[in-house]
Computed example of a mutant assay.
Amino acid sequence: MTTTMGSLGSSPLRPALPAGPARSPERIVLALDPTPTSNAALRWTVERARRSRVVVDVLTVLKPDPVLGDVVIEEVMLNGERVLHHAADALRSVLDDDAFRTLLSWGSPAREILDASEDADLLVVGTGNANRTPVFHHPSMAVRLTTVGRTDLAVIPEDWQASAIPARVVAGISGGVDDRVTIAAAAREAERLGARLELLHSWNRASFAAAMGSELAMDFTLYEDAHRKILDAAVEEASEHYPELEVGGILSDVAVSRVLREAAEGAALLVVGSHGTTAFDRFFVGSTSHDVVAAPVCPTLIVRSRTRRSVEVPRRPRNDS
């Protein structure tokens, strides 16, 4: 893994929506259940509300028991209400009462979460240990929401705590046209956190060698240089368009899921793009993002490629004096 600063230009990074004081507050759907895993997602959302204008819908989903039915319905409802009351108390410390609401729903957790977040800017869920059986914070739920959802998704590991260490935001880029959406979202997050932005690009030497033949018979210098130019161009453009941010680059020749996890250790946020909605896209998202979403090493933001976005940070003129 190497670190680089950019020197080449590319197609410009353009905002998906105009930015500025008139931009609407970010609408967050926070999905909680009666397990400790939810606490990290709630804490993360409270911290986000401290730093920016948000409105929050807190959702908990009650799943009917097909065996016990009405026998346990009262207890289930009480547990759901406790979750919502706890969340309301926490959000009330940073938001006015009219900036959040609590929602109690019955049915399939995945379907209810997806329906509730359809028009939101961000869906926030926690994820826990795969050996536990939470209602909808099992790692498989985070992967499913990543694969089929259409709203930006923040997956918060259960051990997350706010940190006073200087923050880093790591963003994975592929070299495709949708990188501008990922970079714009990551830049906004870096500005929100006062963090350094690190763009990571991996070209996976081992997979390339397996596809093309014996590694011993190949000179990888040209391929590595080509991928370095992709990274340099992205860093150069990000530095130009977000002059208040410190921007760096990381080039790697190992599997992308592995290097993303390594680079994100200790980071405030990992940002990964999710491009398209075809069957191939869903397979690609699942194969490259499974590890970072199912067992995140830090809060992980899955960014969707869509035209309705509010990811752009306000432009500030570069100070050349």
Rank of each mutant, 00 (worst) to 15 (best):
D97V: 11
I302W: 03
V67Y: 14
R180W: 06
S239Q: 04
A185G: 15
V272F: 01
D119M: 12
R205Y: 09
P34M: 04
L260R: 01
E246K: 07
L17A: 13
T133Q: 08
D291S: 10
F280P: 04
A19D: 12
V72I: 13
I302T: 12
E118V: 09
D320N: 09
V29R: 02
S287V: 12
F220S: 09
G194I: 08
S239L: 01
D65S: 15
R282I: 02
W203C: 04
S257A: 15
V54M: 05
S93P: 03
V303W: 03
G20N: 12
A110T: 13
D159Q: 07
V143E: 07
I302E: 05
L260W: 00
P18R: 13
V170P: 00
L91N: 11
V292Y: 00
R92W: 10
D291A: 13
E198Q: 12
V148L: 11
L32Q: 01
A49D: 03
R144F: 08
R53M: 05
S108W: 06
A206N: 10
K63W: 08
G20F: 02
L222I: 08
A186L: 08
P18F: 12
A185L: 03
L216I: 14
S163D: 09
D98T: 07
D291M: 11
G213A: 07
T147S: 07
